[in-house]
Design a protein around this nucleic acid. Structure first.
Lengths: 221, 221
DNA sequence: ACACAAAATATTGTATACAAAAAGTATATC
DNA sequence: GATATACTTTTTGTATACAATATTTTGTGT
């Protein structure tokens, strides 16, 4: 079996929609009207509905029976929960990546970091967002833990999709990524884990403040 | 909106299949033949296919294009990865449950623990397995962290589905659950977290030995 | 008996049709 | 102007049909 495995339309549509959520082409709360979207993507409703089912389980889309599919709006509570979980899992990814770091891993990290530098210099928020996502994903891919990668990927997409404002100044975030890279290159597991944790704690705290301020507001579609 | 929300056929089928995987009615590697299964469940292939897409993203089923859907077989490596992640997430759930423990939570835990005792006494492995799953799920539901609940639930199902033998003697596991309950009732976050970690470490270590022994064998459908 | 090719059958992926439900619009009443 | 009701249009959920692909069975040659 192979890397050249056939990819059916449902899988293709799923990936397309996922990217569209990450880049902001599809925004939280947006209704995914089946007929219109199937025409736009050039497929029938069938693979589109299959992709909705997939996206639902990755928390990128919410299916409301008999009303339709909507790009996920994260409540403040949910965002906080996401961060609590990321606080536990991303250091695991960093730790595993530190163990597994090799020449290919270094090239990958250097590459995504260069793109991140350029994005920060450009001042374009969408570029920064994408570069940040790419950096985190690069780490977990170096860790060779596909299960972890899957979880963190969907978490990252849904949280970035819902955060129009960054939770930390871009230059600070970049500097932290640089330090993290150095720890990873040095195979310093403990430091990589510590730095990743610190990298996320501030954002978690910000999310906690948001959740406290928001109380418990229910999201209606 | 309400607790009495309509549940479409895809969702019903998804739940049914999920349960069947947990209870062992559907076993790892089993092919889910669409026509036969749709007849058995009394629905057309359409909601069934939707449920497959959902189950795929919860790692309970593997979809092989043009060949079909198969109940997930976990490789030794994947099982280890699952445990590494659980080692980070279940203590989080226990910690949050210790904070949130209330009268209803106590009743729930007492109830699932009683069922666990009975299962252990019965010596029926399938009952023990289900009771163990229920105990862990009760904790995370008390934690009121639905995102965590979703992840851990699918992890628990796929790992139990793939472990015909228990990774620890049932009476030992039960005793550990009892101790964990006490810590939760006492709102002792740190102890709850520590006990949950210890509860899982042995199984993780067993999974690591399995992975080492297995090398890297690819699973073919 | 075994290997290979061809034919038959089963299964999957996808488009489409139809019924049910929701959403939108028009009209009547206070 | 606000609200209720009736009607129309749009959308969703689901079943079914059809084409493509995979699998199984059968036939033929050595």
């Amino acid at each position: 079996m192979s890397e050249s495995r056939f990819e059916d339309l449902a899988e293709q549509v799923y990936r397309t929609l996922r990217d569209m959520i990450l880049t902001g082409d599809l925004v939280p709360g947006q209704k995914l009207v089946q007929q219109a979207l199937s025409e736009r993507l050039g497929v029938s409703r069938t693979p589109l509905l299959a992709s909705f089912s997939k996206l639902e389980k990755e928390m990128l889309v919410e299916l409301v029976p008999r009303r339709g599919a909507f790009v996920k709006i994260l409540s403040a509570t949910e965002l906080l929960q996401l961060y609590e979980i990321r606080l536990r899992l991303e250091p695991l990814g960093a730790s595993e990546a530190a163990i597994r770091m090799d020449a290919a891993g270094e090239r990958l990290l250097n590459s995504v970091l260069e793109i991140h530098r350029e994005a920060v210099a450009s001042g374009i928020a969408a570029k920064v967002r994408l570069a940040d996502y790419r950096f985190h994903m690069a780490i977990v891919s170096i860790a060779h833990n596909p299960i972890l990668e899957r979880i963190l990927s969907s978490f990252a997409i849904v949280s970035k999709s819902n955060q129009s404002g960054l939770m930390k100044p871009a230059p600070k975030s970049l500097a932290e990524h640089e330090a993290l890279k150095a720890a990873l290159f040095a195979h310093d597991q403990a430091l990589a884990e510590k730095l990743m944790l610190e990298h996320l704690v501030e954002a978690r705290d910000a999310a906690a403040r948001l959740a406290e301020r928001a109380g418990t507001i229910r999201v209606e579609y």
